[in-house]
Amino acid sequence: MQYMALIYAVPNGEQDYEGDMMADYGQFTQDAIAAGVYVSGEALMPETDASTVRMRGGKAQITDGPFAETKETLGGYYLLECADLDEAITWAAKIPSAKYGCVEVRPVMVFDQ
């Protein structure tokens, strides 16, 4: 099964991170590739650079920033191929930002042919 690990954290929360976060992310990605669970993963630019699009009455409405006012924002993701939820949770728990933010684990929807 494929699981999307959505990484949420308070912007600039990594300031309180103990250790070298970039190095830890590099290590995590290498470990996930070596274990064969890595499908893809990216970090996202902050929400201040986000734009939100809605189609209303056939017209695109574009607003600055994200939809919701929340403290923790989406900062990146990994797409992981795992046998089951337990394996996905084990990997999600190793994502460095889980130490100060949180990681939401969502199964990827599978459509019947």
């Binding site: 795992c82 046998a83 089951d84 939820l85 199964p107």
Partner: peptide
């Protein structure tokens, strides 16, 4: 079923 919670003894 949807989230793949396994049937196993940890």
């Amino acid at each position: 079923s949807n989230a793949g919670i396994p049937y196993r003894v940890p």
